[in-house]
């Protein structure tokens, strides 16, 4: 028996906590939210550059089209698809369902896999990857 006498609830001891899927899911939801915050700068820059003219649009296209630009864009896609799908999970949990530990862990893991599949699927099937265009989206 410890000599802890304070009746108030204690915070979880972070040093003796192990990783759970639901915990990783919660943290990743916040991380991807911040990621999307940064990513929308690219979207607004693209809209702005399109409105101002080719002098702005073409350099931006070149940066976004470079290998680093494409990597960042893919990361942004992953971030959006995760936050969107896990957001749906959150909306479901807001109704009070899905809190049983096993089911909550399952949906957390399911969203990880689905988000990755969605982002990769978008890139492959929309013809964004050079040389990969199974649905002939680019009309080549």
């Amino acid at each position: 028996m410890s000599d802890w006498t304070d009746k108030r609830p204690m915070s979880p001891h972070t040093s003796i906590w192990k990783w759970h899927l639901t915990m990783a899911s919660s943290i990743l939801h916040r991380v991807t939210g911040v990621g999307n915050y940064l990513g929308i700068f690219i979207v607004v820059a693209w809209l702005f550059a399109t409105a101002v003219g080719p002098d702005y649009y073409e350099p931006l296209s070149a940066v976004v089209g470079s290998i680093w630009g494409q990597l960042i864009l893919f990361g942004f896609s992953l971030s959006i698809s995760y936050h969107l799908l896990n957001g749906l999970r959150h909306l479901m949990m807001d109704t009070g369902t899905g809190y049983k530990p096993k089911f909550a862990s399952f949906t957390a893991g399911f969203v990880f896999v689905l988000a990755l599949a969605l982002a990769v699927g978008i890139w492959i099937f929309s013809g964004l990857v050079p040389g990969v265009d199974p649905l002939n989206m680019t009309g080549a």
Partner: peptide, 30 residues
Amino acid sequence: AIALVFLVPWFLISLIGAVRGGYDNALGWI
């Protein structure tokens, strides 16, 4: 969030088509 569940998928799909055809296509899309 509920609004974005509908808006974001539309935006992504539509935007991918818009960026493909170069500047004039982007302009026409907006």
